[in-house]
Simulated scan of single mutants.
Amino acid sequence: MKRLTAALALPVVAAVPLLAAPTTTSAAPVSTATAATMTTATTGGLPTTYRLQGDEGGSKFEGIGADPRSGLFYVSETTGGEIHRGHALRRGTQQWLTGDGTDGRHTARGVTVDGAGRVYVAGGPNGIGTGRPDLWVYSPDGTLLAALRAPADDVFLNDVVIGPDGAAYFTNSNAPQVFRVARGADGWGVELWADATGTVPRADGFNLGGLVVTADRRALVVAQGYTGALWRVDLRSRAVTPVDTGGADLVDADGLVRQGGRLLVVRNFSRSLATLTLSADGRRARLLSQQATDPTRVLTTAASLWGRVLYVDSKFDESVAAPPYEVVTRPVAR
């Protein structure tokens, strides 16, 4: 990768009218950033830490998605549902989408970006017992394209990945289910795409979470946090089978990042980062290392951007979160 020393200008995003999902309100994408939050990268390298803007009452973060073409990354806030945006070259970030009810969004979890720069947001428990949306799709300029309810009960949409077909696949942490979101002839829609009830045993707490596409692009590999199991979901047959991990301890598996034939597993409250080899078809994984992460942080999800991996410091271990709020590139304990 060529070393980048010049700052790129972030596009200014203005509030735009609602294009879809008539039951929601208009988006209010960007707050004004101070000079401090727009500091450029230091000469000789990219920032190792990115500062997130939190709320006065405390903020907790979870999901992250990155767009390698633009250098932009997006981070979700569970406390309010705000979406923050940053750039690989800058230490600071901006609040890109407001929360606290904007577009029916009061909390947010997983985030990803597709090849067209569209941003997909998983709502966690946002729709449980409320009738609110379970997920959202936004254009690169912050226009709301869709706010959708998943066709099932007890839906906690946790993480999301773009498949080889261009559709977005969302995991349900409350049931062994994967939902598929795509734009068809009649607009944006969501379907219950794979239901592994009877195959994946449901455990108390968080179940299906982080997911990646396999190297051969024929399956998804999904983490089950409370058991530490990995599951393979065939993209053609939708069959769900266990990944042979050789007994690796992956309890608290949260975010997954695949880099070629290697799989990074962020183990949030276990405060560990597991690295495994992953076969191209996703049927077999073998542990290479377990590294203790910074004991002062609970890292959740991660995303690759320009040759590095960005990890979200959630603040989930704090009853009332306090700044600094950060995304880090050096996760291991020192």
Rank of each mutant, 00 (worst) to 15 (best):
L46H: 01
V16N: 06
G104C: 10
D252W: 11
A219G: 11
F179A: 07
G115Y: 03
R284F: 13
A14F: 12
Y311T: 05
L273V: 09
P11H: 15
W188F: 12
G92L: 02
V327E: 10
P68Q: 13
R238D: 04
S314N: 13
V221I: 01
T25E: 15
Y138D: 07
D153R: 03
G123C: 00
R258C: 08
A150P: 01
P176I: 14
T107E: 15
S139H: 09
A280M: 14
G198T: 04
N207H: 09
N126Q: 03
L208Q: 08
R180E: 02
L235V: 12
G187R: 07
I83T: 00
G210N: 06
T199F: 08
D254L: 00
L18F: 01
I128T: 10
T214K: 06
A285E: 09
D100W: 11
L287W: 09
T32Y: 12
R297A: 14
L157V: 07
G129C: 02
G115E: 12
S237E: 15
A21T: 02
R217V: 14
G225W: 02
T24C: 14
I64E: 09
R286I: 01
G210Y: 03
L287Y: 01
T214S: 12
E318Y: 11
A146W: 03
L250D: 03
G246H: 14
E56M: 07
A66Q: 00
A302T: 06
P151Y: 00
D141I: 15
A9F: 10
V233L: 10
S289I: 07
E318F: 08
A253N: 05
V30I: 02
R3K: 14
G184S: 10
T43D: 15
V160W: 03
Y169V: 05
T40R: 11
T23W: 12
R236F: 13
V213W: 10
V212C: 13
Y226E: 14
S304G: 07
R118I: 06
V257T: 06
D103L: 04
T48I: 12
F156P: 02
E62T: 15
H84Y: 05
E56C: 08
T98F: 12
T214P: 10
A219R: 07
T329G: 08
A167Y: 04
V161D: 00
P242C: 04
D154W: 07
P324N: 03
L46D: 04
G123Y: 00
N126W: 03
R132F: 13
G142A: 11
